[in-house]
Design a protein around this nucleic acid. Structure first.
Lengths: 343, 343
DNA sequence: CCCGTTACCGTTACCGCTAACATAGCGCTT
DNA sequence: AAGCGCTATGTTAGCGGTAACGGTAACGGG
């Protein structure tokens, strides 16, 4: 039967497989990586030996020797946001058969955590880094610049990138939504969002939104912010609060679909005439909206597509080849849904 | 000013820092790891040099030399499920200041993918593995057994584990829910769930649920299954379908909260008297439910707690020390909410 | 003055694998 | 028969760190 290693506790190495199959370590290595010519006979012998021993190659040693690591660092602010898992899924799909593997780090929207996560990742010498946003600590930016591997900053194009950038313009997205709202005849507009100062994309949307309104001679009439807790519930609570304070608002713009959905539910329950008396809109285009009683107006953030393109850039770069960074701006699509009146 | 490396493209090594600070590589290594005695003077010199050079240690080399890797592999079926990010957050929180770092792999509920992901992870020789579920391919199970590191299987305790196990009994959870439903006087009961044969936990809940009903002389009257798409929307559609086919059902048990929420919304819109005429229940206890018009009955799956405990086991094991595997069964709490009538 | 301690720092030998370069054997040409 | 070009395999020398051990200066007690 199968020969077992001398010490059952000692982890297996190439040497064990090499001895079990009667060839050199190098040949075993070649077989297991499908590299170089190996005769069919020895190939079978080696594979057989590796399998019965239950050998798992040591990538640490392999990576050190070959100076190649098949990992791509992906740094995102959160996993509970629904948006980022979708980006991730785009990345995974694109990386699927490139031999590359995503490794995820989460920052919780904290710049210092981002810096720490990035440091940790770079210490594993990945083949590339995909990181959300354009705003980083000075140290983080320096690390990205000196990493010596392709870097793709995603989600946002409003700013200066280190290398490549894939995203949408949140500023223009906000402005675009403002224009649609104004065109639909709404005039007293409220904004509801997160309290996070570090969510730069939400901030940029708000800024663009304000600018858009300003061009029509309007301004945001009232705002409401939250942090933590169930977004759906917060959406309800904030909606109630802002309407109690300001009953004559005729439109509510939410910084994400989840609080928008909460607001929508609350408005419907409380007999608001949506979209005639009161219009609503969110942001992201999450598929949860499909299940709501009415379709919330929103704007698709191209999440999967962003992931795909970012991964494509990393995978496309020849080993170590540093082509200049490219900037890919995607176009978010406005979906009016049933919560903005149509003329 | 700072001395730059000879070739600006060549990545920095300990040697560069050592030369820049005039001490041996070993001393630099000691400083950067806070290990062994180093005089305050040289410590400062070294740190200064490392910082101005922008040196980032190479963990690949470090791990190979020290045979220590500060990574914990976490293998889960999906990230879009809302449940797993919560487990992850529990793991991260617990690992926070142990020096350990979670690395996530996603299987999409496919056993072959799980096997591949596990193989890939083990090839990085992590300090531990946390993996969802007790059902694995034969090869995967063998790998887990021979990994030589602590393994924690999470989410489920209904079955035989490889090493440690942390989770709840989904069979008992299903049974418990059945008992509550029967006690509340419901008699014609429908079940709605996913089509995935690989979601063993949903299957076990269903089995336990059926057993629970059987003890009261009842049986599941009708079932409806879905796959893919927006869970909220599917919940609606399935609810409509099952009630159209079987108008006299008086209870609907959903295999997760998301479809349950969709069902609840549909029922409310269509004027069903919930919970008198029709009772509803889901599973998981996601905080999205807080924002619904009515609180869906559910059962908390102890997601964060499972993550915490699993991480605790990994972190608690002394290096290489293989204490026998423990089994921790958590108790899910039934929350009746507003969709099961109370007597 | 010698020797043992202590505090600090350097040397050596790997860790497990792979790039790059030998080398052996073989059939074929000339 | 010598020489060539293959293919299949082996040998050597690291990759960039760290464990383990060794050495040295400074100091104090006997």
């Amino acid at each position: 039967m199968a020969r077992f290693p001398a010490d059952p506790r000692r982890p297996l190495t190439l040497r064990d497989v090499s001895e079990a199959s009667g060839v050199s370590e190098m040949t075993v290595s070649r077989v297991l990586r499908n590299r170089g010519d190996v005769s069919e006979a020895t190939r079978m012998k080696v594979l057989e030996a590796a399998r019965t021993l239950g050998y798992v190659p040591n990538k640490i040693a392999g990576a050190l020797a070959s100076q190649r690591v098949n990992l791509v660092g992906v740094i995102i602010p959160s996993l509970s946001n629904l948006v980022f898992p979708e980006v991730l899924s785009g990345i995974s799909a694109e990386l699927e058969d490139t031999g590359l593997q995503p490794v995820v780090g989460v920052t919780n929207y904290r710049p210092d955590k981002e810096e720490a996560v990035l440091y940790e990742m770079l210490s594993w010498r990945p083949s590339g880094v995909i990181i959300a946003g354009l705003e980083h600590t000075e140290a983080a930016r320096a690390m990205l610049e000196n990493a010596g591997v392709p870097v793709v900053e995603i989600m946002d194009v409003d700013g200066e990138g280190v290398d490549s950038v894939v995203g949408i313009s949140h500023r223009r997205a906000g402005r675009h939504m403002a224009e649609a709202i104004v065109a639909a005849g709404y005039r007293k507009i409220g904004f509801l969002g997160t309290k996070m100062p570090e969510d730069h994309r939400a901030r940029k949307r708000f800024e663009g939104f304000s600018e858009g309104l300003a061009e029509a001679g309007l301004a945001v009439s009232d705002t409401e912010f939250y942090s933590g807790g169930s977004a759906l519930l917060k959406g309800r609570e904030m909606t109630q609060a802002i309407l109690a304070r300001n009953p004559d608002l005729d439109f509510l713009y939410y910084s994400n679909d989840m609080i928008g959905a909460g607001g929508l539910l609350w408005c419907l329950e409380n007999g608001y005439d949506v979209p005639e008396r009161l219009g609503l809109a969110g942001f992201n285009g999450v598929d949860l909206l499909d299940g709501l009683p009415r379709r919330l107006a929103t704007m698709d953030a191209c999440r999967r597509e962003i992931g795909r393109k970012a991964a494509e850039i990393i995978a496309g770069r020849p080993h170590g080849g540093m082509i200049g960074g490219e900037v890919i701006e995607l176009e978010p699509v406005l979906q009016l849904g049933d919560t903005i009146r149509r003329r």
